[in-house]
Nucleic acid binder design. Structure first.
Length: 554
RNA sequence: GCGCCCGUAGCUCAAUUGGAUAGAGCAUCUGCCUUCGGAGCAGAGGGUUGCAGGUUCAAGUCCUGCCGGGCGCACCA
C-alpha cells in the first residue's frame, strides 16, 4: 500500500517537474499510517519536501499533486484502492483507502505466520554484535544483565531483518585481573588446608571465591601444595576461569541469551595478532615513538590526544589488543560492527574508531552503544551495591527474584543510553501495573478466545465486515509490525519493539472490550477470529524477538 | 578548564530523526462484570517541553548563549 502511494507520488513528480523551476532530486518523505481516522489512512508529507527544493509554498505543491492525482484517479491502477485524497494542514496529503486495502494484510499475516515481520532490510550486512564481555573474575552483575538482554534482543531483531549476525563475547582472559583471580582462589585454597597466606591487594573477596576454592580442593585434593607458588596460582587461575565461565554461561542461558562465538583475548597473543595489527598501523604511518613508549597518532582521526599502545615497560596498554581484536572482526569479513559497552568506556569510543580508520577500514560501520547503569529499587528506595566489598546483586539473584521474562523486559524497555530504574516490586507484581503482564495477558487472552470458539481459525472470511474504529485501528497496528522492526533494527534500539508491542496489546484489548468475537453472526465471527489470530501471531513473533515467553494461559 | 550526554505531566519514560492537537504507564479521581479471561476497558484532572534568542511552511527535535544535572579527560583494565 505504501509502495503504491509512493509510486503515485513519483509519477506525479516526474510529470509535474517539467513546469517547475528547479529539478527535484533525491526526494525523501514519509508515508505514515494515520492513527487518527480524521486524517485518513495514510498521511504523506511529500509536498513539504518538494516545496523546499523548488522554492514554492507547500500548499501550492500539494494542490498540484492533488490535482494531478484527481484527474487520473480512475485511470491508473495504483490508485484503484484510493477512495479519497485531501489536503490538510499546511500541505499534508491524506489518503483514504478502501477497506479491503487495509484488511488484506490480515490474510497475509496468517499466510506468513512465523515469517511475518521478516525482511531483507539488512541484506549484505555481515554484523557482529559484541556484548557482555565480562572478565570471568566473578558472577555477572545486573549491569551485565542489561547488556545481555539488550544485546541478545538486538541480535534477534537484526537477524529477523535480514542481517547475517554473529553474537560475540570478548573474553579478557590475558590480563592482570585474571592473575588476581587465580591468586585470590589460591589463598582460599590454602586456607582449606589451614595454611595462611597473604591475600593479594585488590584481590577478589566475594564468597564465590571460597566456593571456587572448595571446588578446587574437591577436584585436585592437595596437589597444588606440591607445586611452586607461581605454578599453583596459574593452575588456580585456569580452574577458576573455567568454573566462572561455566557459571556465566549458565546465567546467560537462564535468561535466554546465547552467543555464537567466544573470542579469547589470549589467542591474540598466541597468534601474534597484536604485533601484526601494530605493524599495519606502523606501515600506514600512524605510530611513533616518544619518551620510550610507542604511540598511536589518534589525533589524526579526531581524538583529543595521542594514545600509548606500548608502554616504556614493554607491556601493551589495553588499547593494543583491542585494536588487534577489532582488526580481526574486519578480517573475518564483518562490515557492521556493533559494540555494547558500559558507561565507563565512553571516552574510549573515539580512540577505537580512530584505530579502525587508521587500519584502513573506512566503509564498515562501527556503532558503539553505551549501555547506562541500572539502579534497583525496593520499597521505593535504591538497593545499595558495592563490588568492592564483594556484595552486589548478581544477575542470577535478580532472575531468581523476578523471573526471566520480567528481567529481560525491564532491561530493554528503555533506551539504552538512559540510566534505568528497575523497580523490583513492580517487576514481581502479578497485576495490571506490571507491563510484562500487559503483553502476556493479551496473548493469553487471544489464545483463550480461540480455544473458546471451539474451532480452527478460518483461512478466509468476508473481512469487509471489519469496519468498527477499534477493528480498523487494530489492523493498522498489526500492519506496522515490519516497519517497527526495521526501525528498531536500523536505529539499534530494541526498546522500540517493546513499545510497539505495548501498542499492539492495547489495540487488541480495546477491540476485545468493545466487540464480541464469537457470536451468532457466523460471517462476522469468522472475520473477527481472523483478526484475533493475526494479532496473536504478530504478538507472538514480537515477544519471541524480545525473548519473552508467550503463555497460553496465565 | 576542555569534550560528550541529558533536562518533556507529581513519578518513570515516549514522540515514526524537522511534521498536523506533545503521548503512554504508574499515582489521583469517576464509571463499566447474568454471555468470549476485569491481569481488561471508558473517562477526568495534570504541560510556557529548564530559560532566552535564531534558522523555516513547520522546532521537544537543528544552531547560539545562559541555567541546572551526569559522565569522561591514564604509559589502569
Amino acid at each position: 500500500m505504501e509502495n503504491q502511494i509512493r509510486k503515485i507520488i513519483a509519477d506525479a513528480v516526474g510529470d509535474l517537474q517539467k513546469d517547475w523551476q528547479k529539478p527535484v532530486t533525491d526526494l525523501v518523505y514519509d508515508v505514515q499510517v494515520s492513527r487518527d481516522p480524521s486524517r485518513g489512512d495514510f498521511a504523506v508529507n511529500a509536498a513539504f519536501k518538494i516545496a523546499r527544493q523548488i522554492g514554492k509554498p507547500p500548499k501550492a505543491v500539494a494542490d498540484e499533486l492533488l490535482a494531478w492525482i484527481e484527474t487520473r484517479r480512475k485511470k491508473i491502477k495504483e490508485a484503484a484502492f484510493i477512495t479519497r485524497v485531501e489536503i490538510a494542514g499546511a500541505g499534508f496529503l491524506n489518503f483514504y483507502v478502501k477497506q479491503t486495502a487495509m484488511t488484506d494484510i490480515l490474510t497475509e499475516v496468517l499466510r506468513q505466520d512465523e515469517r511475518y515481520g521478516l525482511s531483507d532490510f539488512g541484506k549484505g550486512r555481515k554484523t557482529v554484535v559484541e556484548f557482555v564481555s565480562a572478565n570471568p573474575t566473578g558472577p555477572l552483575t545486573i549491569a551485565h544483565g542489561r547488556q545481555a538482554a539488550v544485546g541478545d534482543c538486538l541480535v534477534r531483531i537484526l537477524r529477523h531483518t535480514g542481517h547475517d549476525v554473529t553474537a560475540e563475547y570478548y573474553l579478557n582472559d590475558a590480563g592482570r585481573q585474571m592473575n588476581l583471580l587465580g591468586e585470590s582462589v589460591y589463598v582460599r585454597y590454602l586456607g582449606n588446608f589451614e595454611m595462611e597466606a597473604v591475600f593479594p591487594e585488590d584481590g577478589y573477596h566475594g564468597t564465590y571465591i571460597h566456593d571456587i576454592a572448595k571446588a578446587l580442593v574437591a577436584a585436585r585434593k592437595d596437589e597444588l601444595l606440591t607445586l611452586d607458588k607461581a605454578e599453583a596460582i596459574a593452575e588456580a587461575r585456569q580452574f577458576a576461569a573455567k568454573m566462572m565461565m561455566g557459571t556465566i554461561e549458565h546465567d546467560l542461558e537462564a535468561i535466554g541469551v546465547r552467543f555464537d562465538s567466544y573470542f579469547s583475548e589470549s589467542t591474540l597473543y598466541t597468534k601474534n595478532a597484536v604485533e601484526e595489527a601494530l605493524e599495519v598501523l606502523k606501515e600506514r604511518g600512524h605510530l611513533f615513538e616518544q619518551d620510550g613508549a610507542l604511540w598511536f597518532r589518534s589525533t589524526a582521526f579526531g581524538d583529543d590526544k595521542d594514545r600509548v599502545v606500548k608502554k616504556t615497560t614493554g607491556d601493551y596498554t589495553y588499547l593494543a589488543p583491542d585494536i588487534a581484536y577489532h582488526r580481526s572482526k574486519f578480517e573475518r569479513g564483518f562490515n557492521q560492527i556493533v559494540n555494547l559497552w558500559g558507561p565507563d568506556h565512553h571516552s574510549y569510543i573515539t580512540r577505537l574508531k580512530a584505530a579502525c580508520r587508521a587500519l584502513g577500514y573506512e566503509q564498515e560501520t562501527i556503532d558503539v552503544l553505551i549501555v547506562q547503569l541500572t539502579t534497583l529499587y525496593r520499597n521505593g528506595t535504591p538497593v545499595r551495591m558495592s563490588t568492592r566489598a564483594g556484595e552486589f546483586v548478581t544477575l542470577e539473584e535478580l532472575r531468581n527474584e523476578v523471573g526471566p521474562d520480567a528481567t529481560r523486559f525491564f532491561f530493554i524497555m528503555r533506551r539504552v543510553e538512559t540510566p534505568l530504574d528497575f523497580d523490583l516490586d513492580l517487576a514481581k507484581k502479578k497485576s495490571d501495573e506490571n507491563p510484562v503482564y500487559y503483553l502476556q495477558y493479551a496473548y493469553a487472552r487471544i489464545a483463550s478466545l480461540i480455544r473458546f470458539s471451539g474451532r480452527q481459525v478460518p483461512d478466509k472470511a468476508n473481512l469487509e465486515l471489519l469496519e468498527a474504529p477499534e477493528e480498523l485501528n487494530l489492523i493498522k497496528v498489526i500492519s506496522e509490525f515490519p516497519k517497527a522492526l526495521v526501525s528498531a533494527s536500523q536505529m539499534l534500539e530494541p526498546y522500540r519493539l517493546a513499545d510497539y508491542l505495548r501498542e499492539l496489546a492495547a489495540a487488541f484489548h480495546k477491540f476485545y472490550a468493545h466487540h464480541r468475537v464469537v457470536s451468532d453472526n457466523e460471517e462476522l465471527t469468522k472475520a473477527r477470529l481472523i483478526l484475533a489470530e493475526a494479532a496473536r501471531m504478530t504478538l507472538r513473533n514480537g515477544l519471541r524477538l524480545l525473548g519473552i515467553s508467550q503463555p497460553e494461559t496465565m
